[in-house]
């Protein structure tokens, strides 16, 4: 029996399938990813807003604006992450 035949034979058995399916088994890990994804964006954006305010002397306007932009970014991040997970 040559190697090609052996390869086909291995493909027919479920050996290869089982290894790739272990990937899906960590819904728990996915759940943990979402929360920080959202919070980190809000945090970073507010931080940028705070320092822009300090620099441009426009307290608290920019920080407020950036807070909401951060929230939007957080939602975008969560949507993107879940899209990526669905693709897997």
């Amino acid at each position: 029996m040559d190697l090609k035949e052996l390869k086909n034979k291995i493909k027919k058995t479920n050996l290869i399938k089982t290894t790739s399916e272990t990937h899906k088994g960590n819904a728990f890990g996915i759940a943990m990813r979402m929360g920080t994804e959202f919070v980190a964006a809000v945090f970073v954006a507010s931080f940028i807003g705070f320092y822009l305010d300090k620099w441009l002397d426009t307290k608290p306007i920019l920080m407020l604006i950036f807070f909401f932009i951060g929230a939007a970014t957080g939602i975008l991040n969560v949507v993107r992450t879940s899209k990526m997970i669905n693709k897997e």
């Binding site: 919070v39 954006a45 991040n77």
Partner: peptide, 13 residues
């Protein structure tokens, strides 16, 4: 902002 938030979310998690 999304790009900059990557290291934060990675480390905080």
């Amino acid at each position: 902002i999304s790009y900059l938030s990557r290291p934060i979310s990675l480390s905080v998690r």
